[in-house]
């Protein structure tokens, strides 16, 4: 089984202060740490599990600048065979649609049975690359996948719906699946594997290989801004003892317990 996994290196913003850059259209990145997008980790693990079961190859692809090579090397250390980086620096402004077009331009020349992506990137949060890419490649897809079993070229897939409900669907391969977190327990790469991956080649694809003329942007960011506050929070300050006493007072006064 030949598997392609699309991964992205993203800034880790969940616990960081996020500041808007002077253009108003991007964030200040130099103080942030970067790592593989969370759901992509699960997508990669799902590929490694399928390869362990059926054999075959894993190709990881990332659209990014040279620092995405580190992310691709970790994927190689975890079990991917080939890594391709599409040089973001060659393609100017990007959105989800243009990203999917670039991925499709590379993938159309590769043999595959399955494509995995994460179900959402934590930076731009579109959740649209997977289904867009599948449409461009003319293959079926399913998003928010929480379980996959492949039997004779048919995949039996569970998708996460709302409120704890899931649906079970059947999809013919080749197909694309966007993977939800929690589907598996992602492995860590061993130190030996990381050392071995450090020497591996990363294939680069840029404007010499993909013509920029045909690429379309659907959307552009006009401006970034701090979200309006829905509710005015009262921040209680003081030592742990002081804030706890105040909270207990509020709970008693309002009869909350």
């Amino acid at each position: 089984m030949d598997i392609i996994v699309c991964i992205k290196r993203v800034p880790q913003t969940a616990e960081a202060k996020v500041e808007i850059e002077s253009s108003g259209k991007d964030i200040v990145k130099d103080r942030l740490t970067f790592d593989i997008n969370e759901s992509d980790t699960y997508a990669l693990e799902e590929a490694v599990l399928l390869k362990e079961k059926f054999g075959g190859t894993i190709t990881v692809i990332s659209l990014g600048c040279s620092d995405a090579d580190d992310t691709l090397r970790i994927a190689l250390a975890k079990g991917a065979d080939t890594a391709i980086r599409i040089k973001a620096e060659d393609f100017d402004e990007l959105d989800g649609y243009k990203t999917a077009q670039l991925l499709s331009a590379v993938i159309k020349d590769i043999h595959f049975d399955v494509i995995f992506t994460g179900c959402i990137a934590t930076d731009d949060a579109y959740s649209q690359i997977g289904a867009t890419l599948a449409e461009l490649l003319g293959i079926p897809h399913a998003t928010l996948v929480t379980n996959i079993e492949v039997i004779d070229s048919i995949s039996h897939v569970h998708r996460e719906l709302e409120g704890g409900l899931q649906e079970h669907i059947e999809i013919f391969l080749p197909a694309l699946f966007t993977i939800q977190t929690g589907i598996n327990v992602p492995r860590y790469a061993s130190l030996i594997a990381i050392k071995r991956a450090a020497g591996k080649e990363i294939k680069l694809v840029g404007q010499n290989e993909i013509s920029k003329d045909q690429l379309l942007l659907n959307t552009q960011i006009e401006e970034l801004f701090i979200p309006p506050v829905a509710k005015q929070v009262k921040i209680i300050t003081g030592s742990p003892g002081e804030v706890s006493e105040e909270l207990a007072g509020i709970i008693r006064e309002k009869g909350l317990i």
Partner: peptide, 14 residues
């Protein structure tokens, strides 16, 4: 909304 809900973005379309 972007960046773990820390920023909003106005988006224009082609």
């Amino acid at each position: 909304q972007m960046y773990d809900g820390k920023l909003n973005a106005k988006i224009r379309f082609r």
